[in-house]
Amino acid sequence: MQVAIVDYGAGNLRSAEKALAAAAKDSARVIVTADPDAVRKADRIVLPGVGAFAACKHGLDSLPGMVEALEEAVLKQGKPFLGICVGMQLMASVGVEFGTHKGLDWIKGKVVVLDPADKSLRIPQMGWNDLKLAHVGHRALAATRNGDHAYFVHSFHFVADRSQDVLATVEYGGPVTAIIGRDNLLGVQFHPEKSQQVGLTLLASFLKWNP
């Protein structure tokens, strides 16, 4: 099995690569690539991302043929897809960060600034928060437990149009989307590659997932 991590210049991909390789335990070959053909040929696709929504979308759009390759592999062929942090946010219809920018529009919703009413809550949300699973038994989250802690760093969050697309939330002055998904799509706001055993467990489930 080949796993492609899409390299569009958005930060450090080494951690994601290492964590996926550790979770795969030799059952998958993990490649970091900016080549649309390699993305088309992969069995599973991971879209990471750090920084601002617009900068990440611009980076992705700047790779000729990459968005088309992603749409073909993920939407048409139904290959399992995982978006991480801003990679997850890019799955939204629009992002409202330094202006309004179109996302991939794979899961209906908006990415908006995190602004909890409780002003004692810091922005960015930085640290470990416990997951509240909305759908117990989702197969991509087979080994993820209610109350598992994952590591978050973000100032914007995904507000989904349809509640059934929200697979898990965390509490941060109200519910904040932690995991979104539908069909063969999965997106996590936190960093599984930085979430110790909880993260590795989720990545292992993703690698075994046959939607």
Binding site: L121, Q125, M126, G127, W128, N129, D130, H149, F152, V170, E171, Y172
Partner: peptide, 8 residues
């Protein structure tokens, strides 16, 4: 709820 961090 967000947890407080201990950093060595």
């Amino acid at each position: 709820m967000l947890k407080m961090r201990v950093i060595p």
